[in-house]
Write a protein that binds this DNA or RNA. Structure first.
Lengths: 274, 274
DNA sequence: ACACCTTATTCAATATATAGAATACTATTC
DNA sequence: GAATAGTATTCTATATATTGAATAAGGTGT
């Protein structure tokens, strides 16, 4: 690469790094294109994609053609614009069919969101990178806290992040590096955060009081997929709501209920796999 | 490729062809792997994937590692098995957000499934290859006809296929070749089918009386996304139900309602894009 | 505990996917 | 309507992704 891109958008920095390491760079490019098309409000032309991701036009064109052939991307020959195609639904359907966690959490989320008037989430923890919301239940009374199935968050953020830091078995250094990359509404200091992680380890669940989103309290409890709890927790059950309202409705009770639900789920998942 | 695979499963034939043509074969491989993992009831090891798809182990390993890095595939280090990861949900969510057809059809599907006691589908027609179910409404009274969001079908099958054949503007030869590859419960002859396609063109909707699935009648009407109807229809509204029951409940009325709904949707979609 | 078989992973040679320039096409401005 | 600017696409040399063999790791049965 001779000429440095004008505005290396952070995203394309990460992409560039992945490309060098990988033995299948076309796949990283394809993933980047798919995510970009997902984010975009409108269909995009080749040039727009190239600019945003810092790719070579010809290469990008081949990637797009392959994705069109695989029915993951739709191409409008008139406007020469690309967008996501319905093919991505097929993969999601298959994932949902095979996933026992979603089936098991859903009724629990419904129960808890009703009982405590909060928004409940079930999330998959993919690794140190991201967690993904896989199930949602809204209480209906409170106004809609925007969190949809499929949403991705940085793994160490908010209450769930404290759980992962506490139980993931990662090194201090690694956690610190990742912590520094996080974006919060009201960031805790590293010291504060480490204390909260320690507390999470002690009490078995994590709490975020307005750090991630001002005024919003988040409580999360980890769920493992194997009985002996090796490695990091694979899932979490999460409750979110307006801080003041949650205090009124009994935060301690909610925390207890959440913890008990998470433990039950861990048992159910673990039993399945033995 | 020196040694011919023992059981070239038809799927891997198609894959092999795509690989030769494409300038980004890694993407075709990745797509094949994702679809295989989707179909599979259990997580798969490298060897199993290699065998099924006719790939080279080392290459396949690199593909899998890239897909794991992109969070589309989950890897269990203990069992060394691969499965779909929740990341695929994220793409599906984005597709659903941006898609106006799904939003527009859903209430119509609900209305019609109630009124006629049938299972209603909204489908995307990707091209001559596949159509994909993107919205469903069950009447609840009849037993569940299995059709889920994300399901893929060959584009020319059943009633929707007759619509595509009638209005897609494809050549006789191309249609005939594709027709011969279709699998029906009770296949029509090519002559019969051509007649039915002709009729579909005349009346504006297609009907399948037990050809695709014995005893099940399917009615489909095409929906275009542009006002002037160039190219092939992008979507269809589909009604399915037990043949005898549909006759009892008034097939002509259903056909009329379906056609009118499809026309309204075409107008709404067309108006949007002008 | 050993040998055997299966499966995963690394490694080095080469076929080829990729980058960059050249070309064709489309839209816009004067 | 010609000229211009922007975009998509083709073309070709070369860096590298892919291959097939070699190695390592894991599991199974005796």
């Amino acid at each position: 690469m001779t000429t440095r891109s004008k505005h290396s958008s952070g995203e394309d920095r990460k992409l560039a790094k992945t490309l060098k390491e990988s033995k299948a760079p076309a796949i990283s490019r394809a993933a980047a294109v798919l995510r970009l098309l997902g984010k975009s409000e409108t269909p995009l032309g080749l040039q727009a994609i190239v600019r945003e991701l810092g790719l070579v036009p010809s290469t990008c064109l081949y990637v797009l053609r392959a994705l069109v052939a695989e029915e993951f991307v739709a191409f409008d020959p008139d406007t020469k614009r690309y967008s996501l195609e319905a093919g991505v639904l097929t993969l999601a359907r298959h994932w949902l069919r095979r996933n026992q966690f979603t089936d098991l959490v859903q009724p629990e989320l419904d129960r808890l969101s009703q009982a405590f008037d909060v928004t409940m989430l079930g999330v998959n923890i993919v690794g140190l990178d991201h967690m993904i919301v896989v199930a949602v239940s809204q209480s209906g009374n409170n106004f809609q806290l925007s969190a949809q199935i499929g949403s991705r968050f940085p793994a160490l953020i908010s209450a769930t992040g404290r759980c992962l830091a506490a139980f993931g078995g990662y090194s201090e250094d690694e956690l610190e590096e990742r912590f520094n990359a996080l974006r919060w509404d009201d960031p805790p200091t590293l010291e504060d955060w480490k204390g909260q992680v320690e507390q999470t380890r002690a009490q078995g669940f994590g709490v975020d009081k307005g750090n991630y989103i001002s005024g919003v309290t988040v409580v999360a409890a980890p769920v493992w997929k194997t009985r002996g709890h090796p490695g990091h927790p694979g899932h979490a059950v999460v409750a979110t709501g307006i801080g003041s309202a949650m205090k009124r409705n009994g935060l301690p009770q909610l925390q207890k209920a959440l913890l008990s639900t998470a433990r039950t789920l861990t048992q159910q998942l673990g039993g399945e796999s033995l």
